[in-house]
């Protein structure tokens, strides 16, 4: 009845982070990029809880910070999707390479 090794959690979250980063790098659609960012945030959350559970003397810190990360992810999704919808109404595009009005 030994617990699951810490490294297995870390490697799992490493793979999840890598997949999310791959999606963020290769997607053309802004909503697809947002999905990749959500995957990366979840991988970071798993790491926070696993390390605070296995190593830290205060096992509650990781969970508190995960609550903050989830709230920030909700903020990012709300503001990001509002920007996507405004961009779709004004310029009729959701592709990342077409949104270059801030590029000089």
């Amino acid at each position: 009845m030994t617990p699951i090794p810490l490294n297995h959690f870390v490697i799992f979250s490493l793979f999840l982070f890598s997949i999310g980063l791959y999606g963020t790098l290769t997607r053309r659609n802004v909503i697809g990029i947002l999905m990749g960012i959500e995957l990366m945030l979840n991988a970071a959350n798993i790491n926070l809880i696993a390390f605070s559970r296995y190593i830290s003397p205060n096992p509650e810190t990781g969970q508190i910070f995960v609550i903050f990360v989830i709230v920030l992810a909700a903020c990012a999704a709300a503001v990001g999707l509002a920007i996507v919808l405004a961009m779709y109404q004004n310029r009729k595009t959701v592709q990342a390479e077409d949104i270059h009005i801030l590029k000089w």
């Binding site: 053309r28 909503i31 909700a74 919808l85 595009t93």
Partner: peptide, 25 residues
Amino acid sequence: AIMTLLIFAIMLTHRLTDRSVSQTN
């Protein structure tokens, strides 16, 4: 909550997310 928002945005922009458009760079 977040996935509802995402699906809402996908459906509102669905004409640009269909199969004919390449989705990766």
